[in-house]
Amino acid sequence: MASQGTKRSYEQMETDGERQNATEIRASVGKMIDGIGRFYIQMCTELKLSDYEGRLIQNSLTIERMVLSAFDERRNKYLEEHPSAGKDPKKTGGPIYKRVDRKWMRELVLYDKEEIRRIWRQANNGDDATAGLTHMMIWHSNLNDTTYQRTRALVRTGMDPRMCSLMQGSTLPRRSGAAGAAVKGVGTMVMELIRMIKRGINDRNFWRGENGRKTRSAYERMCNILKGKFQTAAQRAMMDQVRESRNPGNAEIEDLIFLARSALILRGSVAHKSCLPACVYGPAVASGYDFEKEGYSLVGIDPFKLLQNSQVYSLIRPNENPAHKSQLVWMACNSAAFEDLRVLSFIRGTKVSPRGKLSTRGVQIASNENMDAMESSTLELRSRYWAIRTRSGGNTNQQRASAGQISVQPAFSVQRNLPFDKPTIMAAFTGNTEGRTSDMRAEIIRMMEGAKPEEMSFQGRGVFELSDERAANPIVPSFDMSNEGSYFFGDNAEEYDN
């Protein structure tokens, strides 16, 4: 993207840094990872977990959730003011799984939030270390993106479920800051804005008074975040219109849905970061690795190297396929839920299948599930090659597409044709070009129609051997075009429920 120079890199967003050079960025990201790792080690000690239990991804998720809940100030305040039966607002906890007599047992633990905050700050040299908290939120978000298709949420806001490739980060909490905003897809931002506008339509006082002023500035800020994701002048001009509207209503909703559809071809720039579970960072720190000293990046080879040398386990339900569970977590670790499966298959070195073909449910185990038949197995999170994460949407291309997802959002900077089903997408653009945004709409449609099938995206960008740390010898991959490109292809993934 041309304006790259004016933006802070995501590592800076990730670490609240002012302008830093590459070495400083690597050190501050490393410091953040160190903090998460030290916190995780301490929690495993508190909970008396064995090494194996500490490497269980379900335990990692519970521990991450506990610290996120302990620092969720708004919710904590709300819980104190609106006490609900049987919930102690000062405590947080969740299921911890232990191996007892050759069987997995679930144990519900409860801790004072104050105590968890103390352990977290102690692991982070006394700081609140917001960057580390956001990092864990993005890992949870990436896992949700890989596990669930947001059909219901899309339909509720009037969008087409086939636009799911635009929904990265749709389950990120509001408090995820600049680093969170960077990884949100165009569809996620559109959905947040539509929800806001709908509230304004239904509630006369939404934009009024002292609160209304705050609401208005939040609305304009979200519009600017979305505008910054678009790469064409016409899309940005249309966002200006939406932002400046005196009284946002149905016309703005129409414009936003139009823009979301246009992003299936004229893709937005959305950041991709490899955020790993805390149970990967903990053992690495415990083994003596100093992330701050060595430096770390979320968008280069580092996460690949770390996963190459990590042992992570997962509980497996009786009829689940461990290899499929591994694929789910591998995609989440690489922030690749909406990437082209052919690119992923090449990088991973084994075939990556669409969601609907995987015999696996989510990673988390519900409290009512029976533990008797639970097994555990090693997650295979290694890769054959590594590639640089991208934040450009890439230019655009036609490809055989599917009944489910009709476009992709690249996660890796790797040369390819970008699949999208042009006739299906263009069919949504018939007729409606009147109104105050008509010239911009016409211009956007013209650009979409001009998108050429034979153009290559990320020209000359390749993948790298894991021994090639400096990215000196790019390998331009070859793809098996007979395979499906979309992950949520004609899909039956479970729906995400809060």
Score class of each variant (00 low, 15 high):
Gly180Gln: 10
His324Asp: 12
Val312Ala: 08
Glu443Ala: 06
Lys90Val: 11
Leu315Ser: 04
Asn492Trp: 03
Ser274Met: 04
Leu56Gln: 04
Arg55Phe: 09
Ser141Glu: 09
Gln149Cys: 09
Leu381Met: 14
Gln364Leu: 13
Phe420Asn: 11
Tyr40Ile: 06
Glu220Asp: 15
Ile257Tyr: 03
Ser287Thr: 14
Gly35Cys: 11
Asp160Gln: 10
Asp255Gly: 02
Ile36Thr: 14
Ser28Ile: 01
Ser367Tyr: 08
Thr23Gly: 10
Met448Val: 04
Arg267Leu: 06
Gly35Leu: 06
Ala442Ser: 15
Ile445Trp: 08
Ala2Trp: 04
Arg389Val: 01
Cys333Gly: 15
Pro173Glu: 09
Arg199Phe: 07
Met43Ala: 13
Thr215His: 01
Pro173Leu: 06
Arg267Ile: 01
Ser377Arg: 15
Gly462Pro: 10
Pro474Arg: 15
Arg195Ala: 04
Gly362Lys: 06
Gly93Trp: 12
Leu68Met: 10
Pro419Gly: 11
Thr437Pro: 05
Cys223Asn: 09
Gly54Val: 05
Gly288Gln: 09
Asn473Gly: 00
Gln399His: 15
Ile33Phe: 04
Pro95Leu: 03
Ala27Asp: 00
Thr350Val: 10
Tyr111Glu: 14
Asn395Tyr: 07
Val299Pro: 05
Thr6Asp: 01
Phe304Lys: 03
Tyr313Ser: 12
Arg461Asp: 01
Gly126Cys: 14
Pro89Ser: 14
Asn205Ile: 13
Arg361Glu: 06
Gln311Pro: 00
Tyr148Phe: 08
Tyr487Asn: 11
Arg317Pro: 06
Trp207Val: 12
Tyr10Glu: 00
Ser367Cys: 04
Ala336Trp: 00
Pro474Ser: 04
Ser310Ala: 15
Gly300Cys: 06
Lys357Ile: 09
Gln327Asn: 14
Leu166Ile: 07
Pro410Val: 04
Ala411Trp: 03
Lys229His: 12
Lys7Thr: 00
Glu495Phe: 00
Arg208Phe: 02
Trp386His: 14
Ala427Leu: 15
Met136Asp: 01
Ser176Tyr: 05
Asp34Tyr: 07
Glu369Met: 10
Ala286Thr: 06
Leu466Pro: 10
Arg208Ala: 00
Val280Ser: 02
Ala284Asn: 04
Glu494Val: 06
Asn250Asp: 07
Leu306Ser: 11
Glu80Gly: 07
Arg470Gln: 00
Lys293Ala: 05
Leu108Thr: 12
Phe39Gly: 03
Gly169His: 12
Gly404Val: 10
Glu465Tyr: 00
Met1Phe: 10
Lys452Pro: 10
Met163Val: 15
Phe458Thr: 02
Ala387Lys: 09
Thr350Ser: 11
Ile63Val: 13
Ala27Thr: 10
Ile57Gly: 13
Arg221Met: 10
Ala70Ile: 08
Ala451Gln: 03
Asp72Glu: 10
Asp112Gln: 03
Asn142Gly: 10
Ala123Trp: 07
Glu73Gln: 10
Thr215Ile: 03
Glu24His: 11
Ser326Gly: 04
Glu254Ile: 10
Ala237Thr: 11
Gly158Asn: 14
Glu339Asp: 15
Glu11Phe: 03
Gly462Lys: 03
Tyr111His: 13
Asn59Gln: 03
Ile445Val: 13
Glu220Tyr: 02
Ser165Met: 08
Val363Arg: 02
Thr6Tyr: 00
Ala471Ser: 00
Glu115His: 07
Asp372Leu: 08
Ile25Phe: 00
Ile57Trp: 01
Arg75Val: 05
Gln122Ser: 07
Gly393Ala: 15
Ala332Arg: 05
Pro410His: 09
Phe304Gln: 05
Gly431Glu: 05
Arg162Thr: 02
Arg38Ile: 06
Gly177Ala: 03
Gly177His: 06
Leu143Gly: 11
Val155Asn: 06
Ser377Ile: 08
Met374Gly: 07
Pro283Glu: 02
Ser345Phe: 08
Arg75Ala: 08
Gly158Tyr: 07
Asp16Lys: 01
Ile96Leu: 15
Gly126Pro: 01
Met440Phe: 05
Asn205Ala: 13
Ile445Asn: 03
Thr424Asn: 13
Glu73Ser: 10
Ile41Glu: 13
Glu454Thr: 13
Thr424Val: 13
Gly37Gln: 05
Asp34His: 10
Gly54Lys: 02
Ser269Ile: 10
Glu244Cys: 05
Met136Val: 14
Gly209Ser: 10
Arg150Gln: 09
Arg236Gly: 07
Gln20Pro: 15
Ser359Trp: 09
Ala472Asp: 06
Glu64Arg: 11
Lys357Thr: 06
Thr396Ala: 15
Gly435Cys: 05
Ile425Asn: 11
Lys103Ile: 08
Phe346Asn: 10
Lys184Asp: 00
Glu73Phe: 13
Glu64Phe: 09
Ile225Tyr: 08
Pro303Gly: 08
Asn395Leu: 00
Ile445Glu: 06
Tyr296Ile: 06
Asn250Met: 13
Ile225Cys: 10
Leu108Pro: 14
Asp491Ser: 05
Glu14Val: 05
Ala27Arg: 14
Pro303Ile: 06
Lys98Ala: 11
Thr360Glu: 02
Phe206Ile: 04
Gly282His: 12
Ser407Asn: 14
Arg441Trp: 07
His135Gly: 08
Pro477Lys: 01
Ile265Gly: 04
Asn125Lys: 05
Asn432Phe: 15
Glu455Asn: 14
Lys48His: 13
Tyr40Cys: 01
Asn59Gly: 15
Phe458Trp: 14
Gly200Asp: 05
Gln308Tyr: 00
Ile253Phe: 12
Asn205Lys: 12
Thr378Asp: 08
Asp491Ile: 02
Asp340Phe: 10
Cys164Trp: 02
Asp480Gln: 09
Glu375Cys: 06
Ser407Leu: 09
Gln409Tyr: 11
Glu495Gly: 10
Gln308Met: 09
Asn309Trp: 03
Ala237Trp: 00
Tyr52Leu: 01
Ile257Pro: 01
Lys31Leu: 03
Trp386Gly: 08
Val242Tyr: 09
Tyr52Phe: 07
Glu320Cys: 07
Arg99Gln: 09
Ala22Pro: 10
Asn370Gln: 14
Thr430Ile: 00
Asn205Tyr: 09
Gly30Ala: 15
Ile36His: 06
Pro477Asp: 01
Val183Thr: 13
Ile63Lys: 08
Trp386Ala: 06
Asp34Ile: 14
Asn202Ala: 11
Gln459Leu: 05
Tyr385Ser: 05
Leu193Val: 08
Ser383Val: 13
Tyr289Met: 13
Ala131Asn: 12
Ala411Gly: 02
Asp160Lys: 02
Ala472Gln: 09
Arg342Ile: 02
Phe479Arg: 10
Leu108Glu: 05
Asp255Glu: 11
Ala129Leu: 12
Gln4Ile: 14
Gly268Glu: 10
Asn205Gly: 13
Ser28Asn: 14
Tyr78Met: 02
Lys422Arg: 15
Gln308Gly: 14
Glu24Ser: 06
Ile253Pro: 00
Ile138Gly: 07
Gly17Leu: 00
Ile33Arg: 00
Ser486Ala: 02
Tyr78Lys: 03
Glu494Asp: 12
Asn224Thr: 11
Cys223Gln: 12
Glu252Gln: 04
Lys357Trp: 07
Gln168Leu: 04
Ile406Asp: 06
Leu68Asn: 12
Arg382Ile: 03
Asp290Pro: 15
Ile225Trp: 11
Gln308Asn: 15
Gln42Met: 06
Ala401Phe: 00
Gly5His: 05
Phe291Asn: 00
Pro89Leu: 12
Lys184Ala: 10
Asp491Met: 11
Tyr496Pro: 00
Arg461Gln: 13
Ala178Arg: 11
Asp491Glu: 14
Ala181Cys: 10
Ile57Pro: 09
Ala179Arg: 02
Thr232Asp: 06
Ser287Glu: 06
Cys223Leu: 14
Arg216Met: 09
Pro423Gln: 15
Thr390Glu: 03
Ala251Asp: 05
Ser383Lys: 05
Tyr487Gln: 07
Gly185Met: 05
Gly158Asp: 02
Glu220Trp: 12
Glu80His: 08
Phe412Ala: 05
Gln168Ile: 09
Ser314Glu: 11
Met371Glu: 02
Gly35His: 12
Arg400Lys: 15
Asn397Gly: 01
Tyr97Arg: 11
Lys227Phe: 13
Asn247Thr: 12
Phe39Asp: 02
Tyr40His: 15
Thr433Gly: 09
Asn250Gln: 10
Lys184Cys: 07
Lys357Tyr: 12
Gly200Lys: 07
Asn473Phe: 15
Lys77Trp: 02
Asn124Ile: 08
Ala260Gln: 03
Lys31Met: 11
Ala233Gly: 07
Ala337Phe: 07
Met456Lys: 14
Ser359Ala: 09
Ala284Gln: 06
Lys293Tyr: 13
Gln149Met: 06
Asp372Trp: 08
Arg156Pro: 06
Met374Thr: 10
Gln308Trp: 14
Gly158Lys: 01
Met32Ala: 01
Lys227Met: 11
Ser9Gly: 01
Lys48Cys: 09
Lys77Ala: 13
Asn76Thr: 05
Gly485Ile: 00
Val29Asp: 13
Val183Leu: 06
Ser383Met: 11
Leu466Thr: 08
Phe304Leu: 12
Val363His: 00
Gln405Glu: 07
Cys44Lys: 13
Leu315Ile: 14
Gly435Leu: 02
Asp72Ile: 06
Asp101Arg: 11
Gly30Trp: 08
Leu172Met: 03
Ser383Asp: 13
Leu166Asp: 10
Cys275Val: 12
Arg75Asn: 09
Arg416Trp: 04
Ala336Leu: 15
Ala428Lys: 06
